[in-house]
Amino acid sequence: MGRKPKSTITNNIRRLRFEHDAMTQQQLADAIGVTRQTVNAIEGNKYSPSLEVAFRIATVFGVPLEHVFEYTPPSG
């Protein structure tokens, strides 16, 4: 039996930060109530945040959620 294909979630947080006066990871972390290391992990696709934190990020940048995160369903 083969391995179940995995879905992927990517994000545009790094680009959005630079488009918002080069906001630092620490500034974003303080705005959404997590640590800078968590923002770094989200940006590096090492951690998928809760829905609440995802919405907080979108609110900080003033864009819809799908402009921040992109979901790729499993292929096949």
């Binding site: 109530g33 997590v34 640590t35 968590t38």
Partner: peptide, 10 residues
Amino acid sequence: GRADERDERD
């Protein structure tokens, strides 16, 4: 370093 509170990832 900073003594941040525990967040959801922690």
